[in-house]
């Protein structure tokens, strides 16, 4: 059902584009995504089931993080049609992209009357829809996330990555930001006690947890997963070629990814090209921040990226958490082998 709606919409979009292209008038190009917010249960590697809220493309499963959204090269406008299947209002913001906001405040009679609930317009609970648009999108790596009761909804999982390149295989206007492979590494945390309280309706003014002031995450995720030994590495291109690591932090705490045995070039912050690139082996990835790091592996084999904040646990178990392996292919390998679609841990290509 959703799928059909989506296909229809896309057809309309392309038809409009085609029309403008053929008619020779100035082209307003743009990309449209249909996102759904919903809930699901996930099984952590230590056997604990946690209720999550996530985004998914219409017709597909909702996931944490949500799908990586791409604004294609040459497009500068983004439209997101959000359908909210959660029991609470949800909205969508993209920090770093200038945009007008239409905040929603708690109404009189509400315990939080007069305080902002959503930083911009909401999609109503239970299937409500809302369309969000951004224009003149600049190149960069961004987090999109809910702008409603962020202290709860973001830790519940309502976030994902958005990327927009300046040119094909070039992140920013500076030619030095060209790359062969890019990898999204989105960091986040889960405090299961908050998730349980939200699930049972015990979070709120009269519940067992009334605010987020006490925050003790015990699951530390990259692209939605806590590391497990033996986990398949992420293909990272061929030795000697440039890899763009897109670091995003949707967690509430700072993490410091370290590229083991390597030095990279930090080229951006929050989707802004840095005035001067810096050679670093770490990225100080504060809560909500994004940073792009260019890496040119000198040798084939695995590269470990681990959190120097040392959130390397899964619940009470060690050897987990925010650690990920990249795999650099040797030179003689045919590009087709590593470029072939492989399901990564986002559950997508």
């Amino acid at each position: 059902m959703n799928k059909i709606i989506k296909r229809d919409r896309m057809t309309v979009v392309w038809a409009v584009l085609l029309l403008t292209l053929t008619s020779g008038t100035p082209v307003v190009r743009g990309v449209t995504y249909d996102l759904v917010a919903g809930e699901f249960d996930t099984l952590m590697p230590d056997g604990v089931t946690v209720r999550m809220w996530g985004f998914g493309l219409s017709g597909q499963a909702v996931t944490v993080p949500g799908p990586v959204l791409t604004v294609p090269v040459g497009d500068h406008n983004l439209t997101i049609n959000l359908t909210n299947n959660l029991p609470v209002p949800v909205s969508l913001v993209i920090p770093g992209l200038p945009s007008a906001l239409t905040p929603v405040y708690h109404q009189a009679g509400d315990p939080y009357a007069g305080r902002v609930r959503s930083l911009t317009a909401e999609a109503a609970p239970g299937g409500g829809q809302r369309t969000y648009t951004w224009t003149d999108i600049r190149p960069g790596t961004f987090v999109y996330h809910s702008g409603t009761q962020m202290q709860i909804q973001i830790q519940m999982g309502l976030y994902g990555a958005l990327k927009h390149d300046f040119a094909a295989s070039q992140a920013y206007a500076d030619p030095a930001t060209a790359y062969q492979t890019d990898i999204v590494l989105l960091y986040s945390e889960v405090d299961p006690s908050v998730h349980a309280a939200v699930q049972s309706g015990e979070y709120g003014p009269s519940g067992t947890i009334t605010s987020t002031v006490s925050y003790w995450p015990s699951y530390f995720l990259i692209n939605g997963e806590s590391y497990t030994p033996g986990q398949a590495p992420i293909p990272a291109g061929v030795v000697g070629q440039k890899v763009l690591l897109r670091f995003l932090n949707a967690g509430l705490r700072t993490h410091v990814p370290i590229i083991h045995n390597h030095i990279g070039k930090l080229i951006s912050e929050d989707g802004n090209l840095l005035p001067f690139f810096r050679d670093q082996y770490e990225v100080m990835l504060a809560a909500g921040k994004t940073s792009d790091l260019l890496l040119t592996p000198a040798a084939a084999g695995p590269i470990t990226v681990y959190d120097r904040k040392l959130d390397l646990t899964t619940g009470m178990e060690s050897s987990g958490g925010m650690l990920v392996k990249l795999d650099v292919a040797p030179l003689q390998t045919q590009p087709g082998l590593w470029k072939k679609p492989i399901r990564n841990r986002l559950g997508r290509v």
């Binding site: 410091v256 370290i258 770490e282 100080m284 120097r308 904040k309 040392l310």
Partner: peptide, 14 residues
């Protein structure tokens, strides 16, 4: 690119 400061927020590993 030298910067002057009266505090440095030294993060883990830096």
């Amino acid at each position: 690119l030298m910067e002057k400061a009266f505090s440095v927020g030294t993060a883990p590993g830096q």
